[in-house]
């Protein structure tokens, strides 16, 4: 009796859901609301509205700025968590000396030294030109973080760490959320909304996007390198 009741109830609940499923556009079809409303608007008016010639940048930083704000906060929180969990190691100096007893490859060391400035320049280029071409803060920051890791492995950790001085490193680690906070506050002043951008490609919009890209880039690179170094401490 009870089982029959459950089946009947399930059927009653399932029927409208299945009917709704049947009425939905096919998976991946061009008639889906996601493609006919938001995406169309992004593509047709994104450049003039969001103020970035690269529509992807406009979507990430302007239309969906809150989402990205959350993302950079997650990245920073991950870094904070790793550092908090692995905070116990005090004997860093001994371990570093032990690690340096492994013979280094002269070839790798030389090539990394030779290419490091070019890689750094490329990272900067990717960050700064994310507004007009593929790229942006996340990508450029990752390139720079990878450079720091390669330098740590192939040249020396001290030399890599010198690029992110300990005194200001916490500020660099939190650069992503901080830049969003700054730009969000600027949005409050300019438009009355947190993370509100002025309409169109004005100088203010460009500056705000640039600050965000730079903050994301610096924060991302620092977080990647910090996590790598902290994990190395434990080894």
């Amino acid at each position: 009796m009870k089982r029959a009741l459950v089946i009947v109830l399930l059927a009653i609940v399932a029927m409208p859901l299945l009917a709704a499923m049947a009425a939905m556009p096919r998976f991946g079809s061009a008639e889906q609301p996601a493609y006919t409303h938001v995406a169309k608007r992004y593509l047709e008016r994104g450049v003039e509205e969001a103020g970035a010639e690269n529509v992807v940048t406009g979507v990430i930083l302007n239309y969906r700025g809150f989402d990205t704000n959350g993302e950079v906060t997650v990245i920073f929180t991950a870094c904070a968590a790793v550092i908090a969990v692995l905070a116990g190691s005090r004997n860093r100096q001994d371990q570093r000396e032990a690690a340096s007893s492994v013979p280094e490859s002269l070839v790798v060391r030389y090539v990394v030294r030779l290419l490091a400035p070019f890689i750094a320049l490329f990272a900067l280029y990717v960050v700064l030109f994310g507004e007009v071409s593929p790229g942006g803060g996340f990508q450029g920051g990752t390139v720079f973080g990878a450079l720091l890791i390669v330098m740590t492995v192939a040249v020396s950790r001290n030399q890599a760490e010198r690029l992110l001085p300990l005194r200001i490193r916490p500020w660099l680690q939190i650069a992503g959320p901080l830049s969003f906070l700054a730009v969000g506050t600027a949005g409050v002043v300019l438009t009355g909304w947190y993370l509100g951008f002025p309409q169109g490609a004005t100088a203010a919009t460009r500056l705000m996007l640039m600050v965000l890209e730079f903050g994301i880039g610096v924060g991302g690179a620092t977080v990647i390198a910090s996590i790598f170094w902290r994990l190395g401490d434990e080894a």
Partner: peptide, 13 residues
């Protein structure tokens, strides 16, 4: 030049 420099280095490493 970049490829000629980095690829053998990676192989060597």
């Amino acid at each position: 030049a970049m490829v000629l420099l980095t690829s053998p280095t990676a192989g060597h490493a």
